[in-house]
């Protein structure tokens, strides 16, 4: 049993897109607990994050790891109880109004899902009212906003103001990330955290959930 989870962890961390589905299928047929398999995949993704932080993996490797995870989850999901995924809490993510870049946002989504968060991905070019609605509907405690374009940073402030108007600002924490975001911008926009890399997202949102 443990042998399979180790193999699955390694397949994810070695970015083995071609073998992950077969491996998970074999594990399921062999009677391995689907939750154990999920833990193996998650551990593999953690290793991918570590390799990225050490400079051994690059953006394309993170993205490929995301593809490996997607392939694996396709096979695994029908065998999991709905509550097994997303146990760490709910996070709403999107690219801000006026901006449609999504590589960073998608990576953050993959990292958070892999780490056990329920991720509500609203997509790109998202109006602040939709974010407010999603936070309310899903009782989210974290928001991740991605912005690549310098000319779109005001959209971050619009989200903060909309949450304040909806009296939700105290119930939810906001992290921003993307090419144009800086510590100074995070202070100016009154958000709670800045993520410089997608792999930082897990730590940031874990700290949000703990607070």
């Amino acid at each position: 049993m443990g042998d399979y989870t180790e193999k699955i962890e390694k397949a994810v961390s070695d970015l083995e897109l071609e073998s992950i589905s077969g491996l998970i299928g074999e594990a399921l047929e062999g009677g391995v607990d689907p939750l154990e398999i999920l833990r193996g995949m998650s551990a593999g993704m953690t290793k991918v994050g570590e390799l990225f932080e050490r400079g051994e993996y690059f953006l394309a490797d993170l993205v490929l790891a995301g593809e490996v995870m997607k392939e694996g989850v396709k096979v695994l999901e029908p065998h999991l109880k709905p509550e097994s995924m997303g146990a760490k809490g709910t996070v709403v993510i999107c690219t801000v109004k006026g901006d449609i870049h999504d590589i960073g946002k998608n990576l953050v989504g993959t990292m958070l899902s892999s780490a056990g968060f329920k991720v509500i991905d609203l997509g790109v070019d998202v109006h602040e009212d939709r974010i407010v609605d999603a936070v309310r509907e899903h009782d989210a405690r974290g928001i991740g906003l991605s912005a690549l374009l310098t000319s779109m940073v005001d959209s971050i402030g619009d989200v903060v103001k909309a949450l304040e108007r909806a009296e939700l600002r105290d119930k939810v924490k906001i992290a921003i990330g993307g090419a144009c975001t800086t510590e100074e911008l995070a202070r100016r926009m009154r958000v709670d955290a800045l993520g410089r890399e997608a792999v930082e997202a897990v730590k940031i949102f874990e700290s949000f959930m703990a607070s």
């Binding site: 897109l17 394309a60 490797d61 993205v63 490929l64 593809e67 590589i103």
Partner: peptide
């Protein structure tokens, strides 16, 4: 697309 490109680099 970057996802497809990441796969193409490998395969």
């Amino acid at each position: 697309g970057f996802e497809r490109f990441a796969v193409a680099i490998r395969a």
